[in-house]
Nucleic acid binder design. Structure first.
Length: 415
DNA sequence: TCTGGGGTCCTAGGACCC
DNA sequence: TCTGGGGTCCTAGGACCC
């Protein structure tokens, strides 16, 4: 049996931990640049405010209901996630950290599943303060369904171990809410007469394979209780890494874009080294505001490959800037840029070039740089072209403190 | 004025090889 | 008019996830 543990309204729950005045009050957390709503408290959900809605479109509604608003504080959420996952580890030897707020657990061999999961739920809230819901089923897809219904059962735990319960739950699950069915497939399925998950469970294999590829077929089998999607206990290294971000305002000056590309290239290079990998391809892209209608949307990119793979920040920055200058046009107002690393290989298994020099000194420099930045804070040492003004940085006007990861941002308590 | 960021997998089709 | 068979690799595009 598999359990899916999902943190309830995770970002909002994290904010409430350190600001109890938010408890019971409608609260939302915004995306980067304070653009869209990416997390909602139950109160906000029942107001009918939708996920992903741009804030400026519903400003008056938020004000009317006195909704509390926070910028997203990923440093805090990532640390709280780590604590939740650690607690879950006490309840199963096999935990897949599926996303920042979800984990799949292997519960094979556990006799009283519901009781076990209730204890787990209580322990997570006692140790971390984060409320979670638990869905239990023989496959991941069914565990997802179970979890969805568990949110409304009252005690937060629902088991679909039983065939009859599975059918009942699938009858009450819209095709739109299935894990593996996005907007496109939902529309296609509705057109073909599939309304509920139960309809899809009974679908013809050949038809599903043809219309939804092998991925869809696996999902249908999972609905029948045949596990097809394994637990991934150790996350494999990323095959591509992206660092991209919208600016706080549009940019036209090459100098500003050079700073941004330098910062993004440095950031993505650091993540590459963290997973002990090397990359052989770098892409830089630029785009204007895609929602603005006065000017046509303009997006452009350029890619280059190195003779041999590297993890050297200065190499990525240097070539990133070359690519930037190739695609930069003076007459555009850019809102977003990014750097992508591709053709990633694990260190020690990389394809060597015929004429490569060995870059020993570079490896030691990167090690020293990462060491200093880890100890004294990000960007303590950086490449000069990152600049020190960085006036293009994103907006985060309503940011809470990094309560659990920074000594200088600890919560103050007065007695 | 204001609209997120970061990934994965599958398939079809083209280029290329012998 | 008629023009082989069998295969690999790469990429773009489309779908999905949180």
């Amino acid at each position: 049996m598999i359990a899916l543990v999902d943190c309830n309204n995770f970002y909002v729950s994290c904010e409430r931990l350190f600001d109890p005045t938010l408890i019971g009050r409608p609260t939302v957390v915004l995306s980067n640049n304070d653009g869209c709503i990416v997390a909602r408290s139950e109160e906000v959900k029942s107001l009918g405010i939708q996920m992903g809605k741009p804030v400026f479109q519903i400003q008056s509604e938020l004000r009317k209901h006195k909704v509390a608003i926070r910028s997203s504080n990923y440093t805090l959420y990532a640390d709280m996630s780590r604590r939740v996952m650690k607690t879950l580890g006490r309840f199963s030897p096999e935990v897949e950290n599926y996303s920042i707020d979800e984990a799949f657990l292997n519960l094979d061999g556990i006799s009283d599943l519901a009781e076990h999961c209730h204890r787990m739920r209580e322990e997570v809230i006692r140790w971390t303060g984060i409320p979670v819901s638990v869905g239990i089923a023989p496959s991941k897809t069914l565990a997802k369904v179970a979890n969805k219904h568990a949110k409304h059962t009252g005690d937060g735990v629902l088991s679909l171990a039983d065939k009859g319960d599975q059918a009942k739950a699938l009858r009450r699950t819209s095709i739109h809410d299935l894990w593996g069915v996005g907007r496109r497939y939902a529309r296609m399925l509705m057109k073909n007469g599939f309304k509920h998950a139960l309809d899809l469970r009974e679908a013809d294999d050949k038809w599903v394979l043809k219309r939804m590829t092998i991925v869809g077929l696996k999902m249908v089998h999972e609905l029948r209780g045949i596990p097809c999607i394994e637990l991934t206990l150790k996350p494999p290294p990323k095959k591509s890494l992206i660092k991209s971000c919208s600016f706080g305002r549009t940019l036209s000056a090459l100098g500003d874009l050079e700073e941004a590309v330098s910062v993004y290239a440095s950031g993505v290079a650091e993540r590459l080294r963290q997973q002990d990998s090397l990359a052989r391809t770098i892409t830089v892209f630029l785009m204007t505001n895609r929602f603005q209608t006065e000017h046509p949307h303009y997006a452009t990119s350029a890619t280059m490959s190195f003779l041999s793979s590297t993890d050297d920040t200065s190499v990525f920055v240097q070539h990133g800037l070359v690519l930037l200058r190739q695609i930069f046009r003076r007459d555009q107002r850019y809102l977003k840029a990014g750097v992508i690393l591709d053709a990633i290989e694990s260190r020690g298994r990389e394809q060597l070039g015929l004429f490569d020099p060995k870059h020993e000194s570079s490896a030691r420099l990167m090690q020293a740089m990462d060491g200093v930045n880890q100890q004294f804070g990000a960007n303590t040492i950086r490449v000069g072209s990152c600049g020190d003004r960085q006036e293009w940085k994103m907006k985060r006007r309503l940011l809470s403190r990094r309560f659990t990861t920074r000594w200088d941002e600890l919560l103050h308590v007065q007695t």
